[in-house]
Amino acid sequence: MKVICTGTSGSGKLDYLKRVVDEAERLGVKIHLYNIGDLMFKKAEELECPTSPEKILDLAPSSLRALRAAVFEEILKETEKVEHCIISTHGCFRWKNYLMPAFDVHYLNELQPDLYVTVIDSVLNVSRRLHESPAWKGRLTLKDILIWRDEEIFVTKMMASFQRKPHYVVAIEQPATTIYNLMFKPDMTKVYLSFPITLMIDDTQKMKEVREFRDKLREYFEVFDPLAVEDTELTYGTVGSGDAEEEYYLSKLSKDFSLTDTEKAKVEDQTVVRDYMLIDQSDIVVVYYPTDKTSPGVLCEIIYGSTNNKEVHAVFKERVSPFLKFHCTKVFADAETFFDYLKETGRITHK
């Protein structure tokens, strides 16, 4: 099993992939991790033309291509000796206000990966990591980071499409088992969990209830959680309280923090498109709705899932608008009834 994993600088990709490797080892599977960036610096040293993170993207395009090719030639030989590997790389770079390619189609064809994954994180977390990097500090605005993240997903998706391979977007707040399951349990049902985020983000008890439902789902399915990337809170001013119990309040914003109108619009648009993308890469949509208020976001996700050939199963604990129910495959009054139905229909096994 060969996996190409992309992600922008500052995405936390490498640390997340190391957790994936550790989790796989705990489960008895050895995965070899190759980080193209580190290998390129090492190869430059061997060739007695060392470079640095601050200067490598200033090299002549021909020099970068040659360095990358030398690394991929070695990886091609290495991957013949190992059963499972993840190759961590970039799809593109946004450097000095222009877009640079970060892959060679020839070597992707030679590698013939089985799976493509793009690792992402919230724009604020990425911004903070880049601010701590001498190579990237002060180079990118929040809007630049949003655009680069979008480009990284798009380029990787095109690479996967060209080779007719699956592509998934995975947030680093997803469990490390997510990529493990995508690699070794491809037939595991993938679920997009929909719930009214904006209506409940300040309700600690209801968010705890959602987390418990999500974790129960994860006992049987691979679950994509839209709040694994928490950009949305930037657009309506939610500020983390510091309470350890409120794990969704991760962005600790300063009092004078604000987005420009352009940045806010970009965040909102990308949030909608990304959630639809998560639905696309899922097999079914499961709605958990512990409130009687109507959420336009959940309504749109229900309609999108239903009209894109996905089953939509919904748990409505309160009386809700018939518009929320109209496009659902099946509706349940509580979580217990929902899980009983899954057992009765053979979707999950009894535990």
Rank of each mutant, 00 (worst) to 15 (best):
E233Y: 05
M40V: 02
K43Q: 14
F162S: 13
S251W: 06
G10R: 12
V287Y: 11
P134K: 15
S306N: 14
K30H: 14
T235F: 01
S321W: 08
V71I: 04
D144E: 12
K208M: 12
T307Y: 09
C5T: 15
E222M: 13
K165Y: 12
D203E: 15
E344I: 01
I348R: 01
T345S: 09
A335Y: 06
K252Q: 08
L259H: 03
K325P: 12
T232K: 08
P175I: 01
F332D: 13
T232R: 06
L342H: 07
I36L: 10
E263N: 03
I75V: 13
F41I: 00
S133F: 11
G346F: 09
S241V: 05
E25M: 12
L59R: 14
D38E: 15
R68M: 13
L64G: 06
R218Y: 00
T8M: 15
R68L: 12
H84M: 00
D225Q: 03
G12P: 09
E45C: 00
E268F: 00
A66F: 07
R94V: 11
V123P: 12
L130E: 13
P290M: 10
T51M: 06
V239L: 10
G242Y: 06
L130N: 10
K55R: 11
V239N: 12
H131P: 02
C49A: 06
Q174W: 01
S122Q: 06
Y98N: 10
L250T: 14
I197D: 08
E268A: 05
M200Y: 11
E344N: 14
A44F: 03
T271A: 04
S194L: 07
Y192K: 08
P61T: 04
R94Y: 15
L146W: 13
D215E: 13
V20I: 09
V117I: 13
A69S: 14
L250F: 04
F221P: 02
F326R: 14
K55P: 01
R129M: 10
D187P: 00
I303A: 12
I153T: 04
L67E: 08
E25D: 15
V123S: 13
E78I: 00
L250D: 02
G91V: 01
K77L: 05
L64Q: 15
C92Y: 01
D215L: 05
E152K: 05
I4T: 08
S122C: 14
F221M: 01
V191S: 04
E78Q: 02
Y289R: 11
T6W: 05
V298E: 07
E173F: 12
E78D: 07
D38M: 08
